[in-house]
Design a binder for these strands. Structure first.
Lengths: 316, 316
DNA sequence: AACGGTATTGTTCATTTGAACGGGCGGTGT
DNA sequence: ACACCGCCCGTTCAAATGAACAATACCGTT
């Protein structure tokens, strides 16, 4: 049905009164002698007919639209895209940190439980955290420490330093992330200290995780936590990378491997149940893992660089 | 405080999600990990900072903006401006009719009480009323009939025809609008038939009135209802015209004159108390009266032509 | 380091708004 | 002419929104 000139004028005046003059629909109805609900419907119509146009100005130098596309394509709660000042891996990693912290600060307001995993990217996140004093907050490890027993630093270290920066309580897992056998793991899990911490982690409000690729020079390998042989087995089964040491293939399907039974840390199901999982990763070599992690829906927030973002949107 | 680039990006994404994707503030808050109220405030900010622009497209060939200016300048509920196809008085009058009917139809929905006054302009309104069948509606005269006793047609006639067109109940005042003396009026008012009708008129939902100028050739004068002498007296006291035979000066101040005591019809106070008084008038010679009627706030809806509208806005 | 002022945050509550439902009107076809 | 169908309207109710208030944290100053 075409709108008559008379109708249109009414629509215009009502829309102006509502959107520009700030009258309520009820007031407008009284003024023009029509019911409130009719004003509501006329406004609907005016929007539908594009007589009312609502424009949101996009900020210049930002990837807001790219982010929105990522969000809708992969069903993310939020995507954050940065433009690294260089494509060098350390630079990219270092610049992801502050962006990730921005996300973190927005949803952590002085309390709650934050789980952190491990990785070189997370190191840069820790470095970017501003000093706070949030004694009601808890930072908990999402998995055991990594590295050889005698140098079991990083896993604990990141959580510890994160807690320190926030002025929060640290809850550390005093056990390695990977142990020699299922039996060892089971006996460690019998320790309430450890199992309670893991239970806490499973119920945390926010998790911040890195996304790893099994390359020979990665810190995980260097640390000797995983043997080259095991990596080959995982790759043979389609693994493209991991979140918190849980490997998955390019479609985000978890890989079955006996190593899973030797890990002290949340599994992918548990991670998915955390309300907000922030994944931080960038750099060309991580493209496939990141895409896989998105497909598997292991994270709801992605912090990455613009090249990855562009590639993630290349083909449906 | 300047908005940082980070803030701005968040504002953008929230505004997009709200205005374009139609998410509620609560949903957005959950997605981005902030409280609902904060989303509300950020949206406020975004509107304030003009990151969100709401544009209402003005219809082409219409006087919508002129009307809006009239509405705000004179505190009207509504102004309707038409472009007569010619400046000839009969043409202007004839074309005001349909516009006035448009207003009328919008707020009368099958029931209620409509008061009508009298005048050549109202005649054209009556002619424009589409046939309806609204038996719950009442059309009542706002004042007695006009014209010499033996040709007491118009006043009654307009109300009667209006009622007929609407398929409504007519409530006519079987008395002249102006009588010879206060005494006569008082005795007529003692008749419940008459006083009840006037009481009904005073409580009507909508009134439609013309706005008159005391020119020698006006129908009022021709009808002999008012003597030329009386018109001169009224003019001498500053009268610029009337609504329902109640005269006022150029500032909308009622004129005191003994004729007021001989009128059978609502006074200006009573008219002002009617929730919606639609004044219909156009043509150059009526400019001053119309402005006066607006100043006196005797009407809340004005239907007029574009020339008058423009002149009404000339100077503050 | 203590203080006060300012800004920002969340809570509560009233208002505003839109969705679902049911009734009535007008138009249409037989 | 009558019945049927679809559209439009208002009512009711739940959801969404914004305002007022109080508490808290953060800032600069003394």
């Amino acid at each position: 049905m075409a709108i008559t000139g008379d109708q249109e004028r009414l629509l215009y005046k009502i829309a102006k009164a509502y959107y520009e003059d700030g009258f309520t629909q009820g007031q407008i109805g009284k003024r023009f002698g029509i019911s409130r609900i009719k004003v509501s419907r006329l406004l609907q119509q005016a929007r539908q007919e594009k007589l009312v146009q609502i424009t949101v100005i996009s900020p210049e130098d930002s990837h807001a639209d790219l982010e929105r596309e990522l969000e809708s394509t992969y069903g993310l709660d939020e995507a954050v895209v940065i433009s690294p000042s260089s494509a060098e891996k350390p630079v990219v990693t270092a610049e992801l940190g502050p962006a990730a912290v921005g996300c973190l600060l927005r949803c952590l307001q002085g309390d709650g439980v934050l789980s952190v995993s491990w990785g070189s990217t997370l190191l840069s996140v820790v470095d970017a955290v501003p000093v706070k004093h949030w004694p009601d907050m808890t930072v908990v490890q999402v998995m055991g420490g990594l590295g050889r027993p005698e140098a079991e630093v990083h896993g604990n270290d990141i959580a510890r330093r994160m807690a320190q920066a926030f002025g929060a309580r640290p809850r550390l897992i005093s056990a390695p992330g990977i142990v020699a056998s299922k039996m060892v793991r089971d006996s460690l899990l019998a320790d309430p200290q450890i199992s309670d911490t893991m239970a806490l982690s499973a119920k945390s409000d926010v998790a911040m995780v890195g996304i790893g690729v099994p390359v020979p020079d990665s810190v995980v390998m260097q640390a000797g936590a995983i043997l080259a042989e095991e990596v080959e087995q995982l790759k043979a089964r389609g693994a493209v990378g991991d979140v918190a040491l849980r490997f998955f293939d390019k479609d985000g399907q978890p890989i079955k491997h006996e190593i899973n039974d030797r890990i002290i840390g949340l599994d992918l199901d548990q991670i998915q149940r955390i309300p907000r999982v922030i994944g931080v990763a960038g750099g060309a070599e991580k493209f496939e893992v990141i895409r896989a992690a998105l497909r598997g829906k292991f994270i709801n927030v992605l912090v990455t660089d613009d090249r990855i973002a562009a590639r993630l949107l290349e083909k449906p």
